[in-house]
Nucleic acid binder design. Structure first.
Length: 278
DNA sequence: CGGTTACCCTGGATGC
DNA sequence: TGCATCCAGGGTAACC
């Protein structure tokens, strides 16, 4: 479910509840999500550990435990999320942080169980694991670096933007939104973008993601919510995603919904007038 | 390398 | 109402 803005919102919500706090107990309700150590090891390492910090890397939530207790990485994937208030669906709770005062808890829930909880021995091990499967963070990548990476492939620009090895953090919603803002057709070969288009795309990525973070991400249906259970506001004011047949905010032509090459089963929304294939 | 497909899981919406 | 089908914000592995 969550992309960069949703994960950033989770991390910001988690910090006051976890950062600097001591974990009394880590309660792993679904051991199948755990990688990198055994449930017993996770319980021992978590008990009494102080959380030094909570950070985001791409779509990963990274929690550092003090005193050589290691790093816990949570990948929410499609349906994972955190709650500071008791979740309505108890059967979806996969991990509970019992932290600080007795009774204080942070819940991690994942309806579809596609997400992962990974333990790493230290920061460099977690960083290396991330680097093996990810490029630079979408909020940090420099324009020239983006240009170099796009130039390396003739795949469509949308699947390339969503490829975490190219840059980390963009998924289906924000790929559509950034491409619309940059006026680039989603099927354009990545290497065919002009310097000016890459410049527009780079700027659009920064602007769209920053706006989405301000609005606490994108919520629809029973999906993503903030740690307090609130809906994110981005999809109330976005341009194309989920807006089939609605007027393009730029030119008023109806938004198209299609499937494109390189993306199995994922919908793509774009404006056929503003985003021409060229 | 690029592309395609299958698969991991489940809940909610839709259609008959 | 009940049941089948489709759809979904992510990601990996296998294969051509």
């Amino acid at each position: 479910m969550p992309e960069l803005p949703e994960v950033e919102t989770m991390v910001r919500g988690l910090r006051p509840a976890l950062s600097g706090r001591t974990v009394r107990r880590l309660e792993l309700l679904d051991p199948t999500l755990l990688q990198g150590c055994t449930p017993g090891q996770l319980a021992r390492r978590g008990r009494g550990a102080t959380v030094v910090g909570v950070a985001r890397r791409g779509k990963w939530v990274v929690m550092e435990l003090a005193g050589n207790r290691g790093i816990i990485v949570i990948q929410p994937r499609m349906t994972g999320g955190f709650w500071l208030v008791e979740p309505a669906r108890a059967e979806h709770v996969r991990l509970v942080f019992h932290v600080g005062n007795p009774g204080a808890r942070v819940w991690y829930c994942d309806a579809r169980r596609l997400g992962k909880v990974c333990w790493y021995a230290d920061e460099s091990a977690a960083a290396e694991a991330f680097a093996r499967s990810h490029g630079p963070d979408a909020l940090e990548i420099a324009r020239d670096e983006l240009a170099r990476r796009l130039d390396r492939t003739s795949r469509g620009i949308k699947p390339t933007l969503m490829d975490q090895k190219v840059l980390a953090g963009i998924g289906n919603i924000y790929a559509d939104e950034t491409l619309h803002r940059a006026r680039i057709h989603p099927e354009r070969p990545a290497s065919s973008l002009t310097a000016e288009e890459v410049e527009r795309l780079h700027r659009s990525i920064g602007e769209v993601l920053a706006t989405a973070i301000e609005l606490e991400g994108s919520s629809f249906d029973a999906g993503y919510r903030t740690v307090l259970g609130l809906e994110g506001g981005f999809l109330a004011q976005n341009s194309v995603y989920g807006r089939k047949d609605q007027p393009c905010p730029t030119c008023a032509r109806p938004i198209l919904k299609t499937k494109i090459a390189g993306l199995v089963g994922r919908p793509t929304y774009y404006c056929p007038a503003c985003q021409v294939r060229g």
